[in-house]
Design a protein around this nucleic acid. Structure first.
Lengths: 198, 198
DNA sequence: ATCTTTCTGGAACGGTAGGTCCATAATTAT
DNA sequence: ATAATTATGGACCTACCGTTCCAGAAAGAT
């Protein structure tokens, strides 16, 4: 019917996610994006509308990828081990500085809180979904409803804090130690409750 | 000797802190600053060098103010109560949305990690000073050296996480509940050690 | 081969960014 | 009063921002 698109859309979005993740929304210029994605201005606007539209798409992609990591761990391991491995994978495992950009959702909340409420809320909703996953894991691990809710909120706070440390290039062992401390608290508290006969 | 300055420098810096704190570095334009500070371009460049120079000064002011809050609580209350009140004051007490901008130091780390390493490191050093204060309080409360170090790192992570939640306009009771959970873990762990006779 | 449709490269747009410059105003020292 | 010095307001500069526009290239349909 007409001339076909010349670039791989998914691949271009992946490149954009990487850039936005690393540099944030404001500091990533259209020129940066065009260079990384390898397409011209016209193609860009034809395919994505505008910069903000692309960013929304990137947030969704990032969130889906993130949730998939946790969900997959949950399918394969005991619930607490899945949670731990999610944290460790996200914050410790790799020494590649190219992967220590913190969490794109957290970064977005902080950067855009007073700038673009729509984007900030979208990122917040994605974070809430992750927190719900935390809660489900804790429930699987034997926590009572109130307990799992409380602990999930706590773990989300730890998650966010860890992402901040991550951006400061804290050492990997220190990071793992902090995570271990946090999980020790949660598991200890759950164990204590069970030991006391609920 | 010559014409005197017409504006109150300290007061102007306070205004700038407020703006930077709320909107971040990049999203705060020189025009915004000039309007808020009430001075002209020439006076601005004469007094502060450039935008980045002013930002450095604002980071220092913010950090000093922040540390003073904790230090004052420490002088007046038992150590754990001082820590708790610092967290509660920063995150819970006020419903005024004008004070829920998160922590300027945390915001800076996140926003500028990949943009301006110098500013990011400066904010990180200020955060480290706060963490040292946490450690001192925990030591006063009877923690052993290793324990206080570990718990201080943990509390800093909580601190950073809470600041992120703060920017998402989480409800005050929820915020206080999370903080209470975190402190409950720390205090419970310390109490357990003491009960077992170290 | 022609028509139609969509995609593409690049020039161009208005707006705003941070920063400079200069003539003038205000002060102190003489 | 005048000279010396510094502060101030505002015009001006260059660079870059996100976005639009248009002429032309590339494909399918007839």
């Amino acid at each position: 019917m007409s001339r076909p698109v010349e670039f791989d859309r998914d691949q271009a979005v992946q490149k954009a996610v990487h850039l936005f993740w690393q540099r944030g929304y404001q500091a990533t210029s259209l020129t940066d994006l065009l260079d990384a994605m390898g397409l011209s201005r016209s193609s860009f606007y034809g395919a994505f509308g505008d910069k903000r539209g692309l960013f929304v798409e990137c947030l969704d992609v990032f969130a889906a990828r993130n949730q998939a990591i946790l969900q997959r761990a949950r399918d394969r391991k005991p619930p607490m081990a899945a949670l731990r491995s999610y944290f460790e994978r996200n914050f410790g495992q790799t020494a590649d500085p190219d992967l220590h950009f913190g969490c794109m959702l957290v970064n977005t909340v902080i950067e855009l809180a007073a700038i673009d409420q729509g984007l900030c809320d979208l990122a917040g909703r994605h974070l809430k979904t992750v927190q719900d996953l935390f809660e489900a894991c804790l429930g699987d691990a034997g926590a009572e409803p109130g307990e799992s809710k409380q602990a999930a909120a706590f773990l989300m706070m730890v998650h966010e804090g860890a992402r901040v440390s991550d951006r400061q290039r804290i050492s990997i062992p220190d990071q793992l130690a902090r995570i271990n401390t946090a999980f020790g608290y949660v598991e200890g508290s759950m164990a204590a409750r069970i030991e006391l006969g609920r």
